[in-house]
Amino acid sequence: MEVTNKVIAITGGASGLGYAMAQRLGKQGAILALLDRNAVTLDDAVSELTEQGINAHGFPLDVSDEQSVITAFADIAARLGPVEGCINNAGITDDALLIKAQDGVVTKRMSLAAWKRVIDVNLTGIFLCGREAASHMMESGKGGVIVNISSISRAGNMGQSNYAAAKAGVHALTVTWAKELAKYGIRTGSVAPGFIVTPMTAAMRPDMQEKLASGIPLKQFGQADNIAQSVAFIMENDYFTGRMIECDGGLRM
């Protein structure tokens, strides 16, 4: 799909990886619908992108709330036209071990609230936004592309039962939707980032950053634009569907 003049929705688009995707696709001529829960951050991102000559618009959204998602996508269609690209990027972490024990006694467990918070945003949110985007794409008759952001943690990662389960589910949705939606001219894809330079990784102690980077074959963290490049590839390659790009410097082989 040629992204020029196509309406592309990006959840979590006001910062981090989502903002990098917005920059790359915006410079290629896409019309951007940035979706984010933080209205102030959203307004700032739209202003910054507009100053760069990018056609960007903000839409407040809680991806875990069904009505919020329905309303946001209806607003996009009314203001910009139906989406032809949707990048499900919004996500959170709430890490904890399943259980902690001392002297044969369980002292702490991952709470149900922590489990639900992550599943609601990272998995249910992708289901809701993907469903709404697919509905608009089908009814417009134009088809489109849905890209879901997974993670190398989908294979299982200590202290991340909730996050790993959600990110594994994300790719399962990608494969399922590829099979279901192809007849409507809709393609899907997943991107699984490894360690990427973000405010979160930047806040780590230098020695911790060094230790993590040493375990990566390329010996460095990736840049946010590396993930944006992967997303753009899926958008533009008309024979790519139901598959995943692992952009992790070779960390998971």
Rank of each mutant, 00 (worst) to 15 (best):
G169L: 06
A182W: 14
Y184H: 15
S15W: 07
G53A: 06
C247S: 13
E236W: 00
I31K: 15
V69Y: 03
D120Y: 06
A56W: 01
M235E: 02
L42V: 09
P60C: 06
L25D: 09
A14P: 07
N88R: 02
S150P: 07
M208C: 00
A45V: 08
Q23V: 14
I186K: 05
A166V: 09
L128V: 02
N38E: 12
V106W: 09
G141W: 02
M204N: 11
M110C: 03
A56N: 03
M208N: 03
G249V: 01
D44P: 00
L181P: 04
V147P: 08
D44A: 12
A164S: 15
A96Q: 11
P217W: 09
K6C: 11
V170I: 11
P199A: 10
K142Y: 01
Q160G: 05
A168R: 05
M208H: 09
L34T: 07
S151E: 11
G169E: 05
A224S: 15
K183S: 15
V145R: 02
L98E: 03
I99A: 13
T71M: 05
G18R: 06
A72K: 02
M253D: 00
I126P: 00
D43G: 06
A33C: 02
S64D: 02
K211I: 03
D238K: 11
L17Q: 13
R37C: 02
A74M: 01
K142R: 15
R205E: 15
S151D: 12
N237T: 14
R37D: 02
K6A: 14
I10K: 06
G144I: 07
V46I: 10
S64E: 04
A232L: 14
G215A: 14
D43H: 07
I186M: 07
G194I: 03
L32V: 01
F233P: 00
M1K: 14
A178I: 10
S214T: 09
I70A: 12
W115L: 14
Y239N: 08
E210V: 01
I8A: 10
G143W: 10
Q229L: 04
S150R: 04
I54M: 00
L17T: 07
C129T: 13
A114R: 11
E180F: 08
Y19M: 13
W115D: 12
A172F: 03
L49P: 02
I216H: 03
A14T: 12
T93W: 04
T201P: 13
G222Q: 08
A22I: 11
N5G: 10
V147Y: 05
L35E: 04
G12E: 12
D95C: 04
L98T: 15
G104S: 10
G13H: 04
R131D: 01
V106Q: 10
M137G: 06
L251H: 02
V7Y: 13
A192V: 01
W177Q: 08
G58P: 01
H57T: 09
K183C: 11
P82S: 15
V175P: 00
D94K: 15
K167N: 12
M110L: 15
N148L: 09
L80F: 02
E139Q: 14
R131F: 06
G242H: 04
K108F: 00
K183Q: 15
N122Y: 11
G16V: 05
S214L: 10
A101M: 13
T50N: 08
I99V: 15
G143R: 13
G250E: 00
I87T: 03
R131M: 06
I54Y: 04
A78L: 10
V118Y: 08
R154L: 13
I149D: 11
T201G: 14
V105S: 09
